[in-house]
Measured scan of single mutants.
Amino acid sequence: DETGKFLVLALYDYQEKSPREVTMKKGDILTLLNSTNKDWWKVEVNGRQGFVPAAYVKFL
């Protein structure tokens, strides 16, 4: 149950560059965990948590 969690859509592919980031593919649906930083949002994708560039995702 994803109640209270926001979902975001990956607009572009992103390859993680550090262990704190996660890789996503364009079209992936991600669970948004934290968006307090304007540049990097914490998400969960494929069972992994990490950061992606905020400009690469949008709210569903």
Rank of each mutant, 00 (worst) to 15 (best):
D1E: 14
E2W: 04
E2S: 13
E2K: 11
T3S: 15
T3L: 15
T3E: 12
G4A: 12
K5M: 12
K5I: 13
K5L: 12
K5F: 12
F6Y: 13
F6T: 14
L7N: 07
L7P: 04
V8G: 09
V8W: 07
V8M: 09
A10R: 01
A10G: 04
A10Q: 01
A10H: 02
A10W: 02
L11N: 04
L11Y: 04
Y12S: 11
Y12E: 11
D13Y: 04
D13A: 07
Y14W: 13
Y14G: 01
Q15S: 14
E16A: 14
E16L: 07
E16H: 08
E16G: 14
K17V: 09
K17L: 10
K17A: 11
S18H: 13
S18I: 05
P19Q: 11
P19D: 15
R20A: 14
R20K: 14
R20G: 15
E21W: 03
V22G: 02
V22P: 01
T23S: 15
T23I: 03
T23N: 07
M24A: 02
M24V: 12
M24C: 06
K25A: 09
K25T: 10
K25H: 10
K26Q: 12
K26E: 08
K26M: 08
G27C: 05
G27D: 06
G27M: 03
D28E: 13
I29D: 01
I29F: 06
L30P: 01
L30M: 13
L30I: 09
L32E: 00
L33R: 04
N34P: 03
N34A: 09
N34I: 07
S35K: 12
T36Y: 11
N37H: 11
N37T: 06
N37M: 09
K38D: 11
K38I: 10
D39H: 14
D39F: 14
W40K: 02
W40I: 03
W41V: 09
W41T: 04
W41N: 01
W41Q: 01
V43T: 01
V43C: 05
E44Y: 06
E44P: 00
V45H: 15
V45D: 03
V45E: 03
N46F: 07
N46E: 12
G47E: 07
G47I: 02
G47T: 05
R48M: 08
R48E: 06
R48K: 15
R48Q: 08
R48H: 09
R48T: 08
R48G: 04
Q49K: 10
Q49P: 07
Q49S: 15
Q49E: 15
G50I: 03
G50C: 02
G50W: 02
G50A: 03
G50V: 04
G50L: 03
G50N: 01
F51P: 00
F51C: 08
V52W: 01
P53L: 03
A54I: 03
A54C: 06
A54S: 15
A54N: 03
A55K: 13
A55S: 12
Y56G: 07
Y56S: 12
V57F: 04
K58Q: 15
K58N: 08
K58P: 01
F59R: 13
F59C: 10
L60I: 13
L60E: 08
L60P: 06
